[in-house]
Design a protein around this nucleic acid. Sequence first.
DNA 1: CCGAATCCGCAGTGATACTG
DNA 2: CAGTATCACTGCGGATTCGG
Lengths: 215, 215
Amino acid sequence: MKRREFGQHCGLARALELVGERWALLVVRDLTVRPRRYTDLLEGLPGIPTNVLSTRLKELEQAGIVERQVAPAPQRGVVYTLTAAGHELEPAILALGRWGATQLGEPRPGDIVTPESVTMTLRATFNHGAAAGLTASWEIRAADLVLHAVVTDGKPDIGPGPAPGDPDLVVTVDPAGELPSYENLMQAMKCGLVQLAGPRELLDTFLHLFTAQGA
Amino acid sequence: MKRREFGQHCGLARALELVGERWALLVVRDLTVRPRRYTDLLEGLPGIPTNVLSTRLKELEQAGIVERQVAPAPQRGVVYTLTAAGHELEPAILALGRWGATQLGEPRPGDIVTPESVTMTLRATFNHGAAAGLTASWEIRAADLVLHAVVTDGKPDIGPGPAPGDPDLVVTVDPAGELPSYENLMQAMKCGLVQLAGPRELLDTFLHLFTAQGA
DNA sequence: CCGAATCCGCAGTGATACTG
DNA sequence: CAGTATCACTGCGGATTCGG
């Protein structure tokens, strides 16, 4: 497993040697959101060949970015997790994602949207300044997709799955055939094409927290 | 020139489709620092095949990231520049570079250091908070390498070449056989292994501006 | 079913030579 | 200076197969 090098003593070159191979950063993105199993990753990365995924996982493990854990008795399977170094990639991933979002046109036919990608976009657009001191929790539902956004004293916890406990506001969106992409979800919320379980003001708070460019 | 796609409607996936190919982000990095000609780029990217460089430049041009300009009469040559969209990649490049720098070990034999890579590292470590309201200018010299860092009311202009006008402090470092990498330069400055032309306090200011993690 | 390994065809890459 | 041409090679995409 010889790694191709760039011949430069440079942070960016080093980063690209470690996570610049095809699919690598998308694997890390999915693991940034939550630990996943091999088949979860396959499902969330449409079109990745199985040999490429297993090669990437080994390279990322060797680079100290990913950890392979054999889960104990009850669920018994292989779970991939990020190491501390892997989680430190998140700011870079969010920055790249923000730039790429400005270059996104209409969804191409066949494109999919995964919970991981929407989670990443929400994290990337979270407005830390506007959230200072705030505490509130939301649950977003759109067809299969369920996300939670919990803000505790300004610090966000954004990810797939329902909000723990009782969310302050549950927003149910009907994307009506459209992809449940970040843009479509926010659009529907702005237009009020949603069902709310909770105080309506919290919808405006949510939109305020996630529409401006994050930090 | 068909582009391979990732099948996801996602900012990160889009970014990787546009600048994820091998060498692409290093080309953008060099152009972030200053416009360059084809042979300048070849020189700053050791080992890049000429056909790969020309392919990348065409792809980046088609993506609206790079502009190819035929310079007029006097110098008459081809100059590559970043578009506005290209310059907007800088935060992502700096973030990736910061992460990669944490993964940099000792320089491998044969590794080189270019003015572009040192410039990028200085920009990445610039501490905007500590610079608020400050105005000062430095020129750093180490063998062939000459860099300027001009801070005007807290806003940095960092790049290769001498400082315009009269810099407040000129720092001459003798890396003595070592690579003139960011780490070696800063190390020499901290130890006082430098010659100064200007007030000594400004050396401490410089170290304070560039040692902490930037924003 | 999960977690891969294996094989094959091909496109992207690397190295070098060459040209307007 | 600014690329193009050629060719060997390797990594990737796609499919199938295999062991726990």
